[in-house]
Design a binder for these strands. Sequence first.
DNA 1: GCGTCCGCTTGACTTGGATCAATGCCATCG
DNA 2: CGATGGCATTGATCCAAGTCAAGCGGACGC
Lengths: 246, 246
Amino acid sequence: MTAHDPVIACGNCPIRHNAICAECEADELSMLERAKSYKTVPVGTPLARAGEPLSHFSSLVKGCAAMSRTLEDGRRQTVGLLLPSDFIGRPGRATSPFDVTALSEVTLCRFERTAFERIVRDTPHVASRLLTMTLDELDAARDWAVVLGRMTAREKLAAFLLNLAQRQRSIRGMARPSGKILVALPMSREQMGDHLGLTIETISRQITALRKDGLIEVPSRQDIRILDYDALAFEAGDDGDGAPIA
Amino acid sequence: MTAHDPVIACGNCPIRHNAICAECEADELSMLERAKSYKTVPVGTPLARAGEPLSHFSSLVKGCAAMSRTLEDGRRQTVGLLLPSDFIGRPGRATSPFDVTALSEVTLCRFERTAFERIVRDTPHVASRLLTMTLDELDAARDWAVVLGRMTAREKLAAFLLNLAQRQRSIRGMARPSGKILVALPMSREQMGDHLGLTIETISRQITALRKDGLIEVPSRQDIRILDYDALAFEAGDDGDGAPIA
DNA sequence: GCGTCCGCTTGACTTGGATCAATGCCATCG
DNA sequence: CGATGGCATTGATCCAAGTCAAGCGGACGC
């Protein structure tokens, strides 16, 4: 069991994602292959709505999506950002607990629900892999609670940029970044605000402040270049050795 | 498989907890029995420290504990409240990602780590049960993000009291509460503040405000009586039919 | 009984982020 | 090309929650 690489390519998916091990589960894999379909949707498409049934499990292959909850008066909080290799849908539950919306054009690798659930049920190490993934998500969600509950607007933005930089890099398997890093912002200021529990005006002001302080550059609305990673990590209250932010 | 009650008594534990099914896993259960020990610790005891190894998995049998992270400057955020039937420790990870502290006198039912991990690994439906529990925790953590990110102090306190009331009742298997409900506060105002991302002064003021508005009574520092559950749910932004708060 | 201590409450004031309101900046389209 | 519309930025003001500081009250020890 320990010989299995925890990150295994799933059939012909263009990216490597996490739940399937081709080496030892050829039968289940071919079952999954038959249940698989790709779908690309434009920005803004709802991928799931809170409380409504989900017919597929999906792996996000390309683009960016957000899980969120909206209160009756319109306040919205994003509770999780989905980037390539992240999953939508959960074994054992027919409905999504949150709204999921495409923040950019999104390509999904979809698996028919019942087939996927059967594999999870019948294939212990797939279930075990899913458990590990879920525990990682849980830790990330709890780390993010520290950001939401106790950080200032400036710290929140810094933590967000670092988080995004790390996740965009980790897909390509890179080490801890240093020097200048270009971060693609796959979302509007409003969606950043929803993620950080701030308003668009505060987001805008804090971006300006970090820029004026020489920590970042803003080549376009959709991009931010981190000029001093360590200084930004300091702003985010990350002392560098301890637990990374989310 | 479907015949198994998802909540099964584990041996002679005084409470019913969630991960073990005695009916079909007698061998594994007896293994667990041998690996089991009880421990009671006083209020304030650290049950785990972020980054340090955990030698046991524990089920909280009695009392209340908090998972938290403390920033260098002393700001602290509680990321999860542990009540009876909740677990401490995670299969596949040797260390705790957060500090865990007893908020009251706490009794733990402890399982030796390697024995517990073996059972999780070798017993598919135990692993599956753990996955379900973890997914529930994940949803709760994300629901709580809405409270931390988007709610006012008054709403936060109302959501907290409702959450506590529901969790304290659900242990005894009660239906949705109505009428007057006595909620035991197993923690200081400071710890409530750490949980809600507020200061003790704000906690205190909001308790006074809810009391003056006739929504709650405060018979002692450690108790709050909810006088109007539905009105409190309205304060918490819970419209009554939708997703419950955390 | 009487301090003393510790956690809670209350009050006065400050402040960080929200709100309200222009204004700027592109991209798109006629 | 200029009009339109949708973000984003910036400025002015407001307010909810934080901060600082002063009581309060029950628990405990002497």
